[in-house]
Design a protein around this nucleic acid. Structure first.
Lengths: 243, 243
DNA sequence: AACGGCCGTTAAGAAACCGTCAAGTTTTAG
DNA sequence: CTAAAACTTGACGGTTTCTTAACGGCCGTT
């Protein structure tokens, strides 16, 4: 009786916490190694060998994490990443062999979150998985910013005003992003410039004024009388929030 | 046995709460008056008559508060303040007579926390002592200051009065910020001006009056009868706080 | 009662700041 | 390598903020 109760309790609590991870690798040995060691670390592990199946399984299983071998036969890991990123923000950690930097960069650009170089320890991998997952959860806090006619999709990096998509330059988007991140707070010229240029940026407020002007003409109904980006004379700017 | 234990416990707790205060005055009548009345208010009172002894006693007794007569024989109260401030941040409240503004300012600039003008009531003195001590205790910086209808968010740099946003100029905000930082304490004209302009600012009290007037019109219900920013004639300003 | 110090208020000129347009330069994409 | 996009810089007019000056009220002293 007592033993039974205990078992049930433990099972339930584990099931709640268990993270579903899909392992994609054509090497049978690696699949088996990851299945056993990740299961021992408390993950709920699924495996597949091909890129096509990886995409299908991601749709069906809705895993919380994806571990992807870069050197897959057929459509490779980079292509898998690119296709999944079109509709999902699932954290993707890929496995690569050494001396494959160009592929690593390409994969990260395609939307992968991190990579682990073979050979790797299981501790290193699980550490990367935890970071990727935590990063994912933080991003989820605020995926889309909506206020009146303005809509900013921070995951897709799409900005629409009054339903129509507006094209922002990288600088304009970065400025808007940091304003949204600290919505309601006054950001000094220096803080904003630091976000746009490198950390060692000197205070060139004039540059900021030009960018803000351009940004306002894209997302404000009447740039003369801004509703979103407010000026704090002598200090900086802030995104208006309603109290 | 039990009685003994109880007695010890109570004594210890009282001993923990009691605030040690050192009174320095050459007038024997004032020493005696302060000893009796402050003891009645729960303070642990020590007295001395000279500045030299005040410094020695501060080292030996490690009091929590210092009450200092400005007109001491020998080294005067200002000099005592200056010397103690070289190594201690103990709150110092001094006693002065009227028409001694220049000495008050000098003592405050030397690092004293507050003053009481003779003749004074014991209630007024203990109130000042509580403020001075409270400021000492709260080391960490305040993030949001709220008092009645006034709300100052120091991280967002947003000020609201009665729920409505108030637009402060950089100078006005800086003044309010330093008043909040030293809430309850008197800040001399010079100390306030130093915060607004560079360190090498001459005492142009008139400039301060204009800024304070503008600030009051923004955050006071009735600027004629200010509830927050109080004027200390001849000395400076202070932000009123309730203990 | 007149005077002088101190304070608050208002107004006006000076200085600093901001937004916009336009032209020049660098970076990116094809 | 070329063209387009993005970034940067400069100039100009309008606005906000700062500073200075002048006026009137309050209070204590002469």
């Amino acid at each position: 009786m007592i033993g039974n109760q205990l078992t049930v309790t433990v099972d339930e609590s584990r099931e709640m916490q268990k993270t579903k991870v899909l392992v994609v690798d054509d090497d049978h040995a690696i699949r088996r190694f990851l299945r056993t060691s990740l299961t021992a670390h408390g993950y709920d592990v699924f495996t597949t060998a091909t890129g096509e199946d990886a995409i299908l399984q991601t749709i069906n299983l809705q895993p919380d994490l994806l571990i992807l071998d870069l050197g897959l036969p057929g459509i490779n890991g980079i292509e898998v990443t690119r296709r999944i990123r079109e509709w999902s923000q699932i954290p993707i950690v890929f496995l690569s062999v050494q001396n494959q930097d160009s592929d690593k960069i390409e994969a990260l650009d395609a939307g992968a979150d991190d990579y682990v170089t073979k050979p790797f320890s299981i501790g290193e991998l699980t550490a990367r998985l935890r970071v990727a997952r935590r990063h994912m959860q933080q991003e989820e806090e605020q995926l889309v910013f909506v206020k009146e006619k303005l809509r900013v999709d921070l995951t897709a990096r799409v900005v629409t005003f009054d339903g129509k998509e507006v094209q922002l330059t990288p600088t304009e988007y970065d400025l808007l992003k940091v304003l949204i991140k600290y919505a309601g707070r006054v950001l000094t010229h220096q803080q904003l410039l630091r976000e746009v240029r490198g950390a060692g940026a000197q205070t060139d407020t004039h540059l900021l004024r030009v960018h803000m002007s351009n940004l306002r003409h894209k997302i404000e109904e009447d740039p003369t009388n801004p509703q979103f980006i407010l000026t704090e004379p002598g200090v900086g700017y802030r995104l208006r929030i309603d109290i």
